[in-house]
């Protein structure tokens, strides 16, 4: 059984179909990259998998650990071990990072039938996980993402991932807005968290993140469907030649640019 099995997924927003039939399967232990030009539907796919309610699935199915993922509320998905690292992490004034993360972790632990962590146990865990992404402790005392720089927000996403230990992590353009040092730190954090029973889906526009997080499979998304899948070398080829050659090969009309979500 695949960890994640997407079959003929069609989804859109306000009657606009953005995903036009996606199929892919991700096995435990694998790293998949989903690449594609702007507007190809990458973020829509990430959002649909995480349960963003603005998207409507019109056809197809998604099975996660054998269960119907689309029937689950976003929080159920999270408790079952799915994690979305946001492309634009949301600022939440007035809610401290630590308070929020403890509530999240305990909701997940409760779901797994584990004891909730008390404040002291939680802090001990946090201290360990901070090292994964070299995040400053002062950030954790502040309200969630409020006033964080772009890089700090992305690191905070991976820090949350380190604490919540998801089985399936979806990184939505985590590389955007990161300088090369931050990119390396974030990528190393992801690599350290990776394990045989876990999988990572990296959604990205550029190849450079894949120098650090090496994918087993690369999918190219265009106009809402996967037009090509391959190994790591596919990403390198995209880096060199861009996306247009694939457009020709796949017979995708160039003028058609669905609204970016």
């Amino acid at each position: 059984m695949s960890l994640l099995e997407v079959k003929d997924l069609h989804a859109g927003v306000n009657g606009n179909e953005i995903l036009t039939g996606i199929s892919l399967s991700v096995e435990a232990g694998e790293v998949h990259a989903i690449m594609g030009p702007n507007g190809s539907g990458k973020s829509t796919l990430a959002g649909v998998l995480a349960g963003r309610e603005s998207y409507v699935v019109t056809r197809g199915e998604v099975r996660y650990q054998g269960k119907d993922l689309l029937a689950m509320a976003p929080e159920e998905r999270a408790r079952e071990g799915l994690f979305l690292a946001f492309q634009y992490p949301v600022e939440i004034p007035g809610v401290s990072n630590m308070y929020f993360l403890k509530a999240a972790l305990n909701a997940i632990r409760k779901h797994r039938g584990e004891d909730e962590l008390d404040a002291i146990e939680f802090i001990a865990l946090v201290k360990k996980r901070m090292a994964f992404v070299d995040i400053d402790e002062s950030l954790l005392q502040r309200p969630v993402n409020e006033g964080f720089s772009g890089g700090e927000k992305k690191r905070n996403e991976i820090f949350q991932m380190a604490v919540l230990e998801p089985r399936l992590a979806i990184l939505d353009e985590t590389d955007s807005g990161l300088d090369i040092d931050a990119l390396r730190i974030v990528a190393e954090g992801v690599n350290k968290l990776h394990a045989k029973d876990k999988a990572v889906v990296v959604v990205t526009h550029y190849q450079r993140l894949l120098n650090y997080i090496v994918p087993d499979v690369v999918h190219v998304l265009m106009d809402g469907r996967i037009v090509k899948s391959g190994g790591r070398e596919l990403a390198l080829k995209l880096e060199e030649k861009g996306y247009d050659w694939l457009r020709d090969e796949a017979g995708v009309a160039q003028a058609q640019e669905p609204a970016r979500s």
Partner: peptide
Amino acid sequence: VFYLRSRGLDEAAARDLL
């Protein structure tokens, strides 16, 4: 609300927190 839910808080808890 979605951000909090995506981390495992249920909708009511997310709304109360906000």
